[in-house]
Design a protein around this nucleic acid. Structure first.
Lengths: 237, 237
DNA sequence: CTCCTTTCGATACACTGTATCGGCAATATA
DNA sequence: TATATTGCCGATACAGTGTATCGAAAGGAG
């Protein structure tokens, strides 16, 4: 019988705390939880403690699956890429449009994406697969030279990053100025009125009053159209 | 003589701690300190404690001048706008180029700007002044209708936001992969080689190997050129 | 000289990412 | 089957964050 010298009898020894069955865990589960959290409460609500709690785990358990919070964010971005359908279309303009709208849709589904797309090259499997599919579709649709293809997707993705930020930023501004309408009217509106009242900004005033108000989608498509027209011109030139 | 009942004599009472002359403080000083810090050590190093320390002040003293850290960030952005010269040029393309390069230069001087330009409308005095100057220059250079002017600067600023992020992101990636070259070669390079070795990404490989490598400025100008060509086309059409 | 207001530093709180360590549980070994 | 080993993971801790609260000191007013 195994009984170390000064181990008290079973009657004295306290029972160890009951252990719950460990929750199943995987990178995919963690990333899903993080994405859900970010969708629901914003990226700033994604803390390792909260993600772990969502999974019935202690915070440090996550470090068996990721090395760093930044790595988790990388995984989240790749998870979004995995949602984006590969671009399709017969002409290269169609493919480009499909590419752009696919990413835009994903970015509007997950508004935090705009904050994470920081321009570093992305080497996650889904991102790479999506990139390869994009290049393939563009070549199949008529662009042969790799340089033309790369220029096109580079400029497209640059515009996309900006457009996403713009659109998401506006959404957020509207949302917060809608929620704390009280505070907004109290803090921001007088400042704007006072500025315009000085008469120092006639064109800004004209823009506010007379310019036609187009939807975010319209503006996005207009910019995209400019870009495609410019590219097309450079192709024929 | 004023001497409350149980106040000990001067010999017993400890001298209050010596008070240093308070450092002069103002919003401008605070913002300048924050900008300097962000330039030197990155945006994540900008904490109220560090900014205050730089100014020989306690952290809470800053709250006499700003209401929130986010407000400080807003002030920093406006301070950058104040550095940007108003766009100039005779033709509207020239003005547009001047606008774009002015903002790009500022964004490269202060790499954190790309992180703060989130797309929300900016109502700081310098930002508004710069915007008004831009609109004025565009109208003076030939664009009459306010709608055309607004479309142009909207699409330009969208592209700019994306381009800045792209460029700054690449710089950071290069910098960190240059500094921890050891780690990068150990962690990222094998992953890339393995991926390309599968043969599943022929176009990505072709791009890596055969595509010409252009400088960031060239790519920026190329995208800008596409955009301007597209706009010009819509003007004449 | 006394009162009052403004200013600010000290302290505290909740929260973050993550390093360290100790013990339990499953596995490999004898 | 008994023991040694390994790997997993929770508890704890630490340094840092933004900011609320409060008391005391300084400056101005009567």
């Amino acid at each position: 019988m195994r009984q170390v010298a000064d181990t008290p009898s079973i009657w004295e020894r306290p029972e160890p705390p009951e252990r719950r069955a460990p929750s199943p865990l995987s990178r995919e589960r963690i990333v899903r939880a993080a994405v859900t959290l970010a969708d629901a409460e914003g990226l700033e609500a994604v803390s390792l403690r909260k993600v772990a709690a969502e999974l019935d785990a202690g915070p440090m358990r996550l470090y068996r699956y990721i090395g760093t919070k930044d790595e988790l964010l990388d995984l989240m971005v790749d998870a979004v890429y995995a949602e984006i359908p590969p671009p399709t279309g017969s002409g290269w303009r169609e493919v480009a449009r499909s590419y752009a709208h696919g990413i835009r849709a994903a970015g509007l589904r997950h508004e935090w994406l705009a904050d994470l797309l920081d321009g570093r090259p992305r080497f996650g499997p889904a991102a790479v697969t999506h990139a390869e599919a994009t290049l393939t579709a563009l070549r199949a649709a008529g662009l042969q030279e790799i340089d033309t293809i790369m220029s096109t997707v580079e400029v497209l993705s640059t515009y996309l990053r900006g457009a996403l930020r713009t659109e998401v930023g506006e959404r957020r501004a509207e949302r917060t100025s809608g929620l704390d309408e009280r505070e907004w009217q109290h803090a921001m509106a007088p400042h704007l009125l006072a500025m315009f009242a000085t008469g120092d900004y006639p064109l800004m005033s004209e823009a506010m009053h007379d310019a036609e108000h187009r939807s975010a989608t319209e503006r996005f498509d207009q910019g995209l159209g400019y870009l495609l027209d410019g590219i097309e011109q450079s192709l024929s030139g």
